[in-house]
């Protein structure tokens, strides 16, 4: 299951979306996330959904690839839906002992589910269409003004690059440790919740140890390749704003305006 997380995975391509400056995409994603929280009825989500669909179509990333990322958070969505269905007070349409389903609960559950799905797909579009290194470069440049007040923007960006790079490596490592512990008779599947959490300790401790070992190896390798901080460093791919970025900015402003306007469309029910 853990292999299916598309968040933080890059889908190589040369589409319009791929070619946008990383900074544009980061800001656009933030605007999109904010807009999802501005929305207060299903019309807004319809607009947001159509907008996202257009971006997906432009990006030429296979839809199957995008939805794979959702399977990992499926449980969270189900959990949210269930909680919202049963815990919302209002007009009761079904009741059994202390459990009850209300009209408001159903509509709110649907609302939250759509919001979560759009949120995840929206933000994974950014990581799918932007090379991790461009993403961190973009972030470094966006944060640059803050380095004047002491924010280490280069270090933050590098930390993110390395974190993204090592997600697959650490997952493999976890997999190996789980299998090794299972081979020694460790049981991760039975017992109550406390026993199960306890049974994670034999996974987490070796994982910590091996992360430190990896970190040490990597630090040596980086030093051997003359890494000495952000000063005096150049980039192979300097990032620049293009015409497409201006277009994207205008589109995002319009999108935000439409989303705000959608609050005033009468609700469906």
């Amino acid at each position: 299951m853990i292999r299916d997380i598309t968040l933080g995975q890059y889908y190589p391509g040369k589409s319009v979306i791929h070619r946008l400056d990383a900074r544009t995409k980061i800001i656009a994603t933030l605007v999109y996330i904010v807009s999802l929280f501005i929305v207060n009825n299903f019309w807004g989500f319809l607009i947001a959904g159509v907008g996202l669909a257009v971006v997906i179509a432009l990006s030429k990333v296979p839809v199957k690839f995008i939805f794979r990322g959702l399977t990992a958070i499926f449980i969270i969505i189900i959990f949210t839906v269930v909680i919202n269905i049963f815990m919302t007070e209002g007009r009761i349409i079904w009741q059994w002992k202390f459990l009850h389903i209300t009209v408001e609960g159903l509509s709110r559950a649907g609302f939250m589910a759509v919001r979560l799905v759009l949120l995840i797909i929206g933000s994974s579009m950014m990581t799918l269409c932007t090379k991790p290194i461009e993403l961190t470069d973009g972030l470094e440049k966006l944060l640059k003004p803050l380095s004047k007040i002491g924010l280490p923007s280069h270090e933050i960006a590098l930390m993110m690059t390395i974190a993204l790079r090592f997600i697959p490596t650490l997952m493999e490592e976890t997999d190996k440790i789980i299998k090794a512990q299972q081979a020694r008779g460790a049981d991760f599947e039975s017992g109550n919740i406390i026993q199960r959490v306890k049974s994670l300790i034999p996974i987490l401790i070796p994982l910590f140890v091996s992360s430190f070992r990896i970190a040490q190896d990597l630090a040596l390798a980086m030093e051997a390749r003359c890494y000495h901080g952000g000063s005096g460093r150049t980039r192979m791919n300097e990032i620049h704003f293009h015409r497409g970025d201006a277009v994207a900015a205008v589109v995002m402003v319009l999108f935000l305006a439409v989303i705000i306007a959608s609050r005033y469309i009468p609700a469906l029910f």
């Binding site: 090379k131 290194i133 790079r165 490596t169 390798a221 003359c226 150049t234 192979m236």
Partner: peptide, 19 residues
């Protein structure tokens, strides 16, 4: 595994010259 800094092949190769 432990000496590759960047997720993408060419970006990793560029790491040294960039430094």
């Amino acid at each position: 595994d432990n000496q590759i800094v960047s997720s993408i092949v060419e970006d990793d190769v560029a790491f040294g010259p960039e430094n």
